[in-house]
């Protein structure tokens, strides 16, 4: 994998990485990809993908209100807030 491909992936994953890291990561990821390519040799015809070890299905519950409003408490950990809103740099001109 080329450093330019790493930069493209990093961009998609919203990660800022510098040229040096991109170069190092390109070589280590190439090794990781070689490792995971061993999967291609496995015969998986007719095998269903396994998402939960016990094949449990998504649990659903009645759509009732069970939690009280904790907006102020939950927002205490945010880096920047104002009047119950999260603040970010201006998005729309």
């Amino acid at each position: 994998m080329e450093p330019s491909e790493i930069q493209k992936l990093a961009n998609l994953a919203m990660l800022d990485i510098n040229e040096e890291t991109a170069k190092e990561t390109a070589s280590s990821i190439t090794d990781v990809l070689a490792l995971i390519d061993q999967l291609q040799a496995a015969d998986t015809d007719g095998v269903a993908p396994m998402a939960h070890p016990l094949d449990a299905v998504q649990v659903l519950r009645a759509d009732n209100i069970t939690e009280s409003d904790q907006r102020d408490t939950l927002m205490t950990v945010a880096p920047q807030t104002d009047s119950g809103l999260f603040l970010v740099p201006k998005v729309v001109e």
Binding site: I6, L9, A10, N11, L12, A13, M14, L15, D16, I17, T21, E24, T25, S28, I29, V32, L33, I36
Partner: peptide
Amino acid sequence: YKRSRGEGFGDEVKRRILVGAY
């Protein structure tokens, strides 16, 4: 987003995010 994540995560975490995204 990019700088907060780039500064906040270490190398191994970044490597796994990238492999996963790929």
